[in-house]
Design a protein around this nucleic acid. Sequence first.
DNA 1: CCAATTTATGCCCTACAGATCATATTGACA
DNA 2: TGTCAATATGATCTGTAGGGCATAAATTGG
Lengths: 83, 83
Amino acid sequence: MKNLARTPNDIGHAIRQARKAKKLTQKELAERSGVWQETISKVENGLSGTKLETVFDIFAALDLEIQVQSRSKGSTESFEDIF
Amino acid sequence: MKNLARTPNDIGHAIRQARKAKKLTQKELAERSGVWQETISKVENGLSGTKLETVFDIFAALDLEIQVQSRSKGSTESFEDIF
DNA sequence: CCAATTTATGCCCTACAGATCATATTGACA
DNA sequence: TGTCAATATGATCTGTAGGGCATAAATTGG
């Protein structure tokens, strides 16, 4: 299973998933990332066209990184199976 | 292709790399993605805090997607499934 | 159930992205 | 070298992200 993302919404889901896996509240994540809790809420729910910078700030606080890769190359898993 | 990214700059590099691999000009990519050539130039050079939407528009035109993963373990494992 | 915590929503305000057009700079190559 | 395509830069304008603050709604724990 992989955390693939093709839309801002996917990113929001991945962030929420990772945050919960680390057992952090939005407020705690906000403190660690320097991004407002209100903003994190919006990002997780796909309610804002977030800036890349903001996403990477959150990623850093969650110890996440991303890999850019070609679509439908190699993996046989379908996107719908992921989230 | 498969590139690690932790900053908007990394994304810009990945985009330029993918665009050249597909032998597209910025103008052609602009037409396919609906993003202005001028914007693509800035994104590739990391000269703007791009919006996620814009990045994904470009990614779609380049047949790219991203994979969110933990930094420490370079594995492709997904986050613990909470629910 | 209730109270506390967590998350979502609403508004104001400033900064800046991106559309758009114009132009400058760079690069390729005959 | 001269020319044309490709890329970068610059200015103006509109829309909106996100900081900041307040609070409503939802969730959780006792």
